[in-house]
Structure formats: C-alpha cells, structure tokens
Amino acid sequence: MILETQNLRKYFGEVHAVDNVNFKVKEEEIVAIIGPNGAGKTTLVNVITGYLKPDGGKIIFMGKDITNASIYERIRAGIVRSFQLVNIFEGLSAFDNIRVAINSRERKEGKIFSLIDRDTTVTKEALQILDLFGLPKDTLARDLPHGDRKLLDVATAFALKPKLLLLDEPTSGVSTREKNKIMDVIIPAARKEKVSLVVIEHDMDIVFNYSDRIVVMHQGKILFEGKPDEVREHTEVKRVLLVG
C-alpha cells in the first residue's frame, strides 16, 4: 500500500466534507474518485496533499505518518498534485515550466550563479517530458490552448517524479475528443514511470475506461469502492450519481 488514510476527517462547521474516510491506494494503481458535487473528493485530495489540515485521523504514506507533514515534505516524499483549475506558470514558456519543476526536484532551484541554459542534463530531461506530452517548447504557457495547458499542468507534476500523483479533474473544460487525448498521454506516462495515480473525474467514460479501481464518495464518506464493472452494477451508486 502506498497511501492509506485512517478515519480521516475534515469539517467545515456543520459540513462534514471528509468524514472518517479510510482511503487506500496500492503501488502503481490507477484509482478514480467519483461522486456528486460536494461529495468531498477535492477536500480529500486537499487534505492528503497538505493544502488543508485534517481535523482528525491519520495519513500514512509508504509506511510513514505524514499527517502533520508540510506541503514541502509531502512533495519531497513523492506526493504531487494538479488542480481543478489550470495552475501553471503563465509568464514562462512550457519548457521553463518543466525546468523549474526539475530544478526543484533536484534541489537546484536556489542556485543564484548557475545559468539555467547551461544545465544540459535538466534541458535534456525537460525536452523529453515536453516530447512525451506533445507540448511545444517555446510557447508561453498563457498562449497555449486549454487542452495543452491542462497537459502542461500534469507534465509539470510528472517532472517532479512523483510516487503518487493526484489529479483533480484533469480533463475539465475540454472537448470529449481532447479528454481522451489527454488521458491517452497521462495514463501510459504514469504506467511507464510506475506512478500511482488518483484521479478525480466527472466524465464516466474516462473513469470506466482508464481506472483500475473506483472509489465512490457521497456526503464526505466512501459509499462504495471496487473495480469498474462492480461500480457500474451497484444500485446505490447508480442512484447517488444520477440523483446527486
């Protein structure tokens, strides 16, 4: 098990956004989290990645308790995320977005007298990642089409060489054709790099086609979890997803 939460809780006043959740991810597994709006999916990811502090419970990552670890410590441990809304360095080129991430991973980000263009190792790796995700090198991030911006967001996360990557709606706001294109890039890359993947997604075609296991959340709790076929046949899940 790479990640395990034990009775994880996050409350916002009366709202129990994450309510005693025991969520598990195996190594190299691709897990989708689904559920209606307000089910607590993003809050769960926010708590796991350190964006929010939990009100109770434990987070165990690779056998270590990281419940009180900082965002920085979690990233160094190998937990990386992308956001629901595109979160990239808009004024930098796609190439520089990746280079900044690689530098951070290699702990070279603070070198004042080391010219970034002179680092051929980082340059080579950044170009490989851009190639893997089919992204242009010199275009400013802000000038990329929406689908490419989503990809760049994920590519930046990949550059950190995560052990666990949590993607919050990686295909939101793009056309159906582009959704598949994005997932066809992300999933093989994750398999190749042996990254465990947690994907929050609303598009059921994407969820059923690309995940190994699906976790259904409702009102802050895990309603059901199982293989795509098991989830598809589950009556309570169908009711919740249809009614919301």
Binding site: S104, E109, G110, L115
Partner: peptide
C-alpha cells in the same frame, strides 16, 4: 539563473 527562474515562477 535557476534562482531567477524560481522567482519568476513564484511571481506567476
């Protein structure tokens, strides 16, 4: 430098 790009990333 790497540091300069890091600053620009923080800015953005």
């Amino acid at each position: 430098s790497n540091f300069g790009k890091t600053l620009q990333a923080i800015r953005d």
